[in-house]
Design a protein around this nucleic acid. Structure first.
Length: 415
RNA sequence: GGAGAGGUGGCCGAGUAUGGCUUAAGGCGUACGCCUGCUAAGCGUAUGAGAUUCACGUCUCCGAGGGUUCAAAUCCCUCCCUCUCCGCCA
């Protein structure tokens, strides 16, 4: 959600942001509603004031036994007018709230402008792509039966993962390693619900835009979380923190559920694109002055993880057209996958500034006193499992179909 | 799923039977001041949020939403959440 002052005073900035991100921009409608609303508010407030005065008069007249008929009659008339105006006002309020959820966040000034991912800028590439004296295989061939698509298909359907034996254990080991890594960096470990309600989804920004990309349990109006960002961010919904509490750094493991409707076809082989995947997610609540620095810190942190996993990686800053609805700035991490010979996205790290906190009323009380202010929220994957597994397996394969894992995983050779 | 008890400002908590004298008492906490060898105590003052306005101010908010009334924290309806017990179940 954007600040009403911004919408009111700098509509061109909002238009430009929407244009660059390729999002609709109902600013003209909003401006109209806003003006109408303020007019009606003025009328209803002075009427209410009058009614309050009359109530006082009625009260004291009755106590002294005097008649209050004329006051009561006027108050009734005033009340009717209030009722009428309030009806209009609440219709406007409802529409404004709906319209406001449709404004995308404003990209940071240093975000490259461009209509899609082709305008993303690679910041740096690290690690060395492995070379082979044989033809490297894609992970689904190396894994063979350990990646049992017949079983997952029977259990749930296409594009679900079922791992067996060594592969299943590798996933568990990786989750463990990632969580220990964050823990040692001083973040608080969180275990969350994997379903979330409509308010939570609205706060983190999945609703309204992505509502139909999520699994929805109609009976209870609950959604399967598409990312751990949702429960972690909503921990402090409708909460006022103290300035001294900031920054709050959290992480948690969650499965992530995505319908991926309409995405069948390219890039869906193997572990690349699935309906349920595992992820360890980091979320930070930051003082507004510190969120830029925090974003860079998170980038370094994730880069460290990938280098320990010995995975060649490429970091890009996303162009406006590729930036998600709620984000102001985002870095993507891709790892090299030798068998498929392509880069796979394994982490995005974003600064949302006050976009989410405004939706969810996540604030902090300034130490020097004064009104509560909105925190900045950031989040980043650390990391998404299936593609990490794919890259690990492909990059470390041997000619006889085995896998030699990097030392941090201290694993025996597989398959 | 059934029965019961609750939800009031940062926290605790009064007010709900009998609607108006509560534009929510009191306490704790917090901040500042006084006092004081120091600290504590004591005394004093201040201290919720949102909307709107250039401002003074005004309006709104007692879980959420509706209703009754001249007037609702208080009466009525619907829903949500928490706690206790029962049932079912990993």
């Amino acid at each position: 959600m954007l600040d009403r002052g911004l919408l009111r005073n700098e509509p061109d900035k909002v238009r430009e942001a929407s244009l660059n991100k390729g999002e609709p921009c109902p600013i003209d409608r909003w401006l109209l509603l806003d003006e109408e609303r303020r007019n009606l508010l003025g009328s209803t407030e002075s009427l209410r004031r009058r009614r309050n005065e009359l109530s006082q008069e009625v009260s004291s007249l009755k106590k002294s036994g005097a008649p209050a008929d004329s006051q009561i009659a006027e108050s009734k008339k005033v009340g009717d007018s209030i009722g009428q105006i309030d009806k209009e006002l609440s219709a406007i309020d409802r529409e404004m709230a709906k319209v406001e959820l449709r404004f995308t966040n404003i990209p940071d000034p240093d975000v490259p402008v461009g209509k899609d991912e082709s305008a993303n800028k690679i910041i740096r590439t690290s690690g060395v792509k492995p070379s082979f004296d044989f033809e490297p295989k894609p992970h689904w061939e190396i894994l063979g039966n350990l990646f049992d698509q017949n079983a997952s298909g029977d259990i749930a359907g296409a594009n679900f993962i079922l791992l067996r034996g060594w592969a299943a254990r590798l996933q568990r080991k990786l989750i463990n390693w990632m969580m220990n890594f964050h823990s040692e960096a001083g973040m608080e470990e969180i275990w969350t619900p994997f379903l979330a309600n409509r308010e939570s989804m609205t706060t983190s920004g999945q609703i309204p835009k992505l509502e139909y990309d999520m699994y929805h349990i109609e009976k209870d109006d609950l959604f399967l979380i598409p990312t751990g960002e949702v429960p972690l961010t909503n921990i402090y919904r409708n909460t006022t923190l103290n300035e001294g509490d900031l920054p709050v750094k959290l992480f948690g493991y969650t499965p992530c559920f995505r319908r991926e409707a309409g995405s069948y076809g390219k890039d869906t082989r193997g572990l690349n694109r699935v309906h349920q995947f595992e992820k360890v997610e980091m979320v930070r609540f930051e003082h507004p002055d510190n969120s830029d620095k925090a974003l860079e810190e998170m980038v370094i942190h994730v880069e460290k993880m990938l280098s320990l996993l010995e995975l060649p990686c490429r970091i890009s800053i996303l162009a406006t057209g590729d930036l998600s609805f709620a984000a102001a700035k985002c870095y993507d991490f891709e790892v090299w996958s030798a068998g498929q010979e392509k880069w796979l996205e394994v982490s995005s790290i974003s600064n949302f500034r006050d976009f989410q906190s405004r939706r969810g009323m996540i604030r902090y009380k300034p130490a020097g006193g004064g009104k509560p202010l909105f925190v900045h929220t950031l989040n980043g994957s650390g990391l998404a499992l299936p593609r990490i597994i794919a890259a690990l397996i492909e990059n470390n394969q041997t000619e006889d179909g085995k896998v030699r894992l990097p030392s941090v995983l201290s694993a025996k050779t597989g398959t």
